[in-house]
Amino acid sequence: MMTAEYPAAPEPLLRIEGLKTYYPIKRGLLSRTVGNVRAVDDITLDLYPGETLGLVGESGCGKSTIGRSIIRLENPTAGKIWFDGEEITASPMSALRGERTKMQMIFQDPYSSLNPRMRVHELLAEPMRVHGVAAGAGLEARIDKLLDTVGIPRSYKQRFPHEFSGGQRQRIGIARALSLNPKLIVCDEPVSALDVSIQAQILNLLKELQQELGLTYLFIAHGLGAVKYISSRIAVMYLGKMVELGTKEQIFGSPRHPYTQALLNAYPIPDPRKRGQERIVLQGDVPSPAAPPSGCRFHTRCPFAQVKCKEEEPLLQGTGHAAACHYPLVTG
């Protein structure tokens, strides 16, 4: 059973505090750093065991960078990350390697995240061999079991990735992530590249696996429907900042940040009878994260912006349902 409330155990599995990940902009002959793209700018977030936290926002908001920083595919510029009670921000790569078996990632593009020259058997055996999880007959048995778990026939073991459809490839990616018995899986847009009918299959599989294996997910996506379906809590990001955090009922039912409201509103509803409905359409584009606007980063596009929004940066306020806005909405 999934509940929208925090799980009973108050100890978070993953804790991110003040995480900043900047990408330097280098210019000129000496490639001097002339500025920073502030992809992730001061994010604090807890992830509890067994929950799914959805991370949503538009392209360039930094949601993928958070996922990649946790797994240390990017080096955080500042901030701390605790996993399972231990601080891993400063861990050397060698120590991290062991820790990382407990944190896995599923990528968006199942076409480019599997080595095209390896057969399915090898793709699944490799991580287990490297980390000494299984060997010999135990390894074979485990590969069979993983294939069963994700719904790929065992007889396909000797096939190459190109022989599979997108959905099947994503299943193989999931099997690979599961092979090391992880506690946390960072799912980075796992269904965005798939067809609608296949998306549902993968979302259902992820949900089943979570119940069976007690996994914790950080589910990064821009498709709000998928996020709503799978998440218990949702964090909304805009331009490197978290603007709202709450349970899925709170975010979808009574959004407090104008950006969240606009995002929900922009989503086309698959019901032609509702097409006449007034909707808030945001003007303009997302500003560059290299030169974010002063004060509230959303003020340039916010329909309710006031003078204060331009001058003072709002903090993420509220316990449980938090919003970073000087004038939060009262809805619901």
Binding site: S197, Q199, A200, Q201, N204, L224, G225
Partner: peptide
């Protein structure tokens, strides 16, 4: 019908499993 049911709806109430179409094109 399958296509309609397999879209996670942002207005819909949370359901346990999403209807999906088995197999692939």
């Amino acid at each position: 019908q399958g296509l309609m049911k397999s879209i996670p709806h942002i207005e819909a109430e949370a359901e346990e499993t999403l209807a999906s179409i088995p197999g692939a094109v």
